[in-house]
Write a protein that binds this DNA or RNA. Structure first.
Lengths: 164, 164
RNA sequence: GGACACCAAUUAAU
DNA sequence: ATTAATTGGTGTCC
């Protein structure tokens, strides 16, 4: 029987606004855990949250089964669960204020990654987790791990590219 | 030639949140040092930091020359250096979260004190110092002195008005 | 108006 | 070293 994959993602950036940032991903499959992370010289917290999800899906490409992605970003999770993107696609990538949707490049990559996964036999579900919880259940632990990776990656970015 | 004035300010309060608190100011002018302090029965650390700066400027009223105010409060220093107050004034004293700006009464007194000093021929500059440093340079020493005064004043407040 | 993140600093408590 | 309280900022959407 095909066990599903559980993924935890998180992003971090200096100042929340423009600056160095990092992302972290923890992939749990069966009893094993894999983690990835990366950084960027100039980004935002939101971009890192989206990029983490993209990297997560790209890292499990070809998997046939259920993929559950946990994130503490309502920005990311609501886009998928509440299907904001449907409206964005229909309206030519403008939001409810008629402004261009931010981070369109990453949203498009993410939607493509999801489509790709589903085309090859996976199902993808996004779920919200509370960030910064002291709880001990797996979701909380996974989120903390992803957070650690993101923060470490962000620090690496600061070291390489200079602080804000 | 007119030597500048250097001022060190600090505030302290019980619990960081509401409680008794105190402030301390050290004024260095030429070779001489003057210090002031005071306390309040119910205040916050932030209010004490602002009040210390107000008291400092009021204590050198009429001075014509450069006044440098050192504080370890980024709350205080950022407001002045990053000109948060310009936005607050323009937006009717609401912050970026559309909430009323906290401690408006003290900010207004401080801005008035600065205007007053500049109107009478002084220039005022705020600078950040790291708090609780063991360094030996003058800024660190001044900050420690101001800190001692603030803490002593806070203790006096506790004695007079009861602990938290 | 609502929501979730990201970040900064200070102050304290043990 | 960790937990908790205050203040401030930006990123984004509905």
């Amino acid at each position: 029987m095909s066990e599903g994959i559980t993924v935890f993602t998180d992003g971090a950036s200096v100042g929340g606004g423009g600056g160095p940032g990092g992302w972290g991903v923890v992939v749990v499959r069966g009893g094993t855990e894999r983690s990835l992370s990366g950084h960027e010289p100039e980004t935002t917290n939101q971009r890192m949250e989206i990029l983490a999800a993209i990297k997560a899906l790209e890292s499990v490409r070809g998997f046939e089964g259920e993929i559950t992605v946990y994130s503490d970003s309502s920005y990311l999770v609501n886009c998928l669960r509440r299907r904001w993107y449907v409206k964005w696609l229909a309206e030519g990538w403008t939001n409810s204020k008629k402004q261009p949707v931010a981070n369109r490049d990453l949203w498009e990559r993410l939607l493509a990654a999801i489509s790709d996964a589903e085309r090859t036999g996976a199902s993808v579900e996004f779920r919200k987790v509370r960030g910064h919880t002291k709880a001990t259940h797996e979701r909380a632990r996974g989120n903390r791990l992803a957070d650690s990776l993101a923060v470490a990656a962000k620090k690496e970015a600061i070291k390489r590219f200079g602080a804000s």
